[in-house]
Write a protein that binds this DNA or RNA. Sequence first.
RNA 1: GCGCCAAUAGCUCAGUUGGAUAGAGCAACGGCCUUCUAAGCCGUAGGUCGCGGGUUCGAAUCCCUCUUGGCGUACCA
Length: 589
Amino acid sequence: MMRQIRQQWKELVEREILLYAKELLGTDDPVRELSIAVQTPPKPELGDIAFPLFVFAKVFRTAPNALAEVLRIRLGARTDLPEGDLLVAGPYLNVKVDVISLAGHLQQAVQAQGSGFGRNQTMAGKRVMVEFSCPNTNKPLHLGHLRNDSIGESISAILKANGAIVRKVNLINNRGVHICKSMLAYQKYGNGETPESAGIKGDHLVGKYYVRFAQWEKEDPTAMGQAQEMLRKWEDGDPEVLSLWRTMNQWTLEGVSQTYAKTGISFDQYYYESDTYMFGKDNVLKGLEQGVFYREEDGSVWIDLAEINLDKKVLLRKDGTSLYLTQDIGTAIARHTDWPFDSLIYVVASEQMYHFKVLFHVLQRLGHPWAKDLHHLSYGMVNLPEGKMKSREGTVVDADDLFAQLSLLAVEEIRSKDREDDVGDVAATGEAVALGALNYYLLQTNPTKDMVFNPAESISFSGNTGPYLQYMGARISSMLRKYESMREAHDDISFDGALLKIEEERELVKLIARYGESVEEAGRDLNPSAVATYLYELSRLFSKYYHDHQILKAETPQLVKARISLCAMVLQVLKNAYSLVGIPFLESM
RNA sequence: GCGCCAAUAGCUCAGUUGGAUAGAGCAACGGCCUUCUAAGCCGUAGGUCGCGGGUUCGAAUCCCUCUUGGCGUACCA
């Protein structure tokens, strides 16, 4: 809503500058070439919308301060201005919006739109496919996957909130040499154990054998060759290999699904590399016929990437088996056929930037016009305070372990505060708190950046954390429950924004009005941290407000009504924002 | 070597796309529970925005050099 007000004032100021130029200089041409910036002043006293006038100083040959004064007087003389006050702050012409009327509009809008408040139509009708997670079927999920999942789920929600039609897809990496490794080790050392017999989640059991292979490989130099041989058998459709493969894949996927269920991850469609890799191969061969690729003497198929200043890249091995890139070509084409998209976003770690550069180029060379609509949402590595996670050193943080640990600590926190009775289902609440903590921690940082995951900090729950944000929602909910008992006395009183005179109240109103912009920004930049930052700002302001001022015991019933309505607005915005960054809403905690 | 990305308080991160006195949290220190939940609130301290140059009325933000770190440059994924 703030956006519209801003736009309205911008047009007015722009028009006035043009008029003034025509009067003073006889022409507005030089001004037309300049564009006026719209900003938010750093302090509330300076107003809510700022127009810096530096750029116009030259044209008018006056100091920007003087120009600001002229514009203020000229605009002030108009009768068609929207509500609000104009003020000059040095070289800025600022507008103080009318908070009272803003509060009234917002109150109606929030009430009418509810969970839809903050949504916008900037991407209306656009079909966006988002690929994320993409686990291997040879090990359980770890912290790196959790960042991927958080970003993927959040971005999908954000794009939807911007009006897009979103399809979340997962690509299961269920074939290839690495998959054969765990199978081979299982054949050799498994003794027929199953998740049931071992009492281990399927993904962890398979992961155990993937690790076992690494050990075996050190002792036996033929191990790798055997894995490659197994892959050839797999591609030849060897029944025994396929049967083991199906069994172990199933184990992993069941385990991973449980993790998804706990961490709130879901997909509209699953793709499996085992289904698409042949299709990729076909397309590579087609490209070979078209002359886009070429064949080496040993039989391998290549593309020369000199066009984009890169080296040559292999697309099919000399033994004819396909590679990661081959599969991705097939998957992309299959997807566009399945569900023609306006855009496909791959949420994949930054280490694969090169891969996607090549993939997009190959698809374009193959003549797919939609190749330009592919986008790699690259996110940085997750490191630990001690440095990189290394599987060899056993420092990889397992997703299930971490989540269990966080949940346990949340439960302890609830118990230590004697909140069991208020909370109801302690275990479920603990998990909800853990999930909020985890998602917020992972989404706070701009995806493009590497980040440090400090387990101790993520579970501390004090300061700028998910639980802090959840706590605000729970506190407001608690107040609203108490308000129910005194509601009748207030039902006939209508909301009066004019009663919200305290600075924090005015700031809250304006911040609520800006929520939609943070949703837009997050969508435009594919950056959930924009919403995360907004959420924290709103929570902190509200926290200070209700700490310092009585809501339910305010002096008059009219004031109670005004304040509790403001609280309800804040709660709705919190809920809406929570849903975009994976923070579960809790009635009490 | 070449390519891509990053560098902001002791630590972890924001910074409205070039604007006003660079902000939070953690850690440290000091206050605040007879009060709508103290998972909280308030205060103190902490900065050569990696270095050097350039563009501009104006730079943490844009350009160049350098330094440091990460990633990539596989017939791995």
